[in-house]
Write a protein that binds this DNA or RNA. Structure first.
Lengths: 201, 201
DNA sequence: GACGCAACTAAGCAATTGCATAGTTGCTAC
DNA sequence: GTAGCAACTATGCAATTGCTTAGTTGCGTC
């Protein structure tokens, strides 16, 4: 349960970044100690000072490393519609790989207190939201800027719920319900475009 | 910035609970130390041991104390519709009193690692969701269980965004957009109930 | 008014923390 | 092969941590 990785020469830095994500996810930011990270990474704790200088710098680097991987993971969001298969894939992702998600919530919360992390947090969220906005616009939705933010918040909030208070079995239908809500909104607005365009108000 | 409260005899316990919420919100769970809490509360740090025994027990009591206040705060959710005034009130709440909200996210994340906090976290979220479900059902929405979970997740996610990466000025329209989405869904389903009931599939 | 007891403080200790210092190991360029 | 240098380890220390022990203070009760 402790020393997991065995490293070849030169792989220490990467191992330390991965270990940082794992330790934060498993023990929280208050469980993030140089010795804990080093033990998980299978190296000496002073190697952290060597590569990163301080603990704060280690976390910053780990955030950059993790967000780069996170945005790639969200190839999910390339999915065009929020349907059952999207919901299943998202629930499955959270079930099988919760560490990266937990780490994200921890660091975004921390970014409120550490200005040096703000940029990464903002970029991560705005990146997600912009991608989603493009997809929504492509489908003909109106008022896509606030809509994208709201829909992303719903997905984000449901992932948060699944990680903490809810089972995948109840989260999945909630994700699908977002899809039907969007469909209904689309059907309503496209079913009566002429009246609305022509109408007063 | 440090020793804030001056207490009369007998008010130490309550002051310590309030200080715990404040310290967690301002410095994170890793900044939660007995001395920090005591200093904010304006008492000696050993008083924590006297009242609560351990630091873990202090956090547990603070969670119970804070969630009791949180559910009352959410008299907001007594609002029947998600409109502009609801959105404004929610944004204003988060702006003016972020401590309690931040504390909630911190402790819910922590509840993943501390089984003794799980019950409080689940009760808090399920309480919100149940209240919301009743309101949605009253308005004639269908499939309210997953819908309530999704809508709450959206509101929760938007509060999280406002606390971390977004300004109230962009969060508020996103909240309102949830309201219009729900209206549209309602209009669509009530506009053609006969066909749907009578139709196959 | 003094007894009893909860609320509270003062002092300190063992363990853990981040990190500095000093050294060793292994790759790579020539 | 050996010089040079990055990657890495071992040791240790000052500061902070949670919490124990031993005491003091103030309030209600009879």
């Amino acid at each position: 349960m402790a020393a997991t990785r065995t490293n070849e020469y030169g792989k220490g830095r990467e191992a330390l970044l991965a270990a940082t994500v794992q330790v934060v996810a498993e023990r929280g930011l208050h469980g993030l100690t140089l010795r804990a990270v080093a033990e998980v990474a299978g190296v000496n704790n002073t190697l952290i000072s060597h590569h990163f200088g301080t603990k704060d710098a280690l976390l910053h680097e780990a955030v950059a490393w993790a967000t780069a991987r996170a945005i790639r993971l969200s190839d999910l969001s390339a999915a065009e519609t929020i349907d059952g298969s999207f919901a299943g894939a998202l629930v499955e992702l959270v079930t099988s790989e919760p560490h990266l998600q937990i780490f994200q919530y921890e660091f975004v919360l921390e970014s409120r207190r550490r200005p040096d992390l703000r940029a990464e947090a903002v970029a991560l969220y705005e990146g997600y939201i912009e991608g989603l906005e493009l997809a929504l616009a492509r489908h003909g939705h109106a008022d896509t800027k606030p809509l994208a933010r709201a829909v992303f918040a719903a997905l984000d909030g449901l992932v948060f719920q699944q990680l903490t208070v809810a089972e995948g079995i109840v989260v999945q239908p909630a994700i699908e319900r977002i899809g039907t809500l969007l469909e209904a909104s689309l059907a309503g607005s496209t079913a009566r475009p002429l009246q609305e365009i022509g109408g007063a108000s």
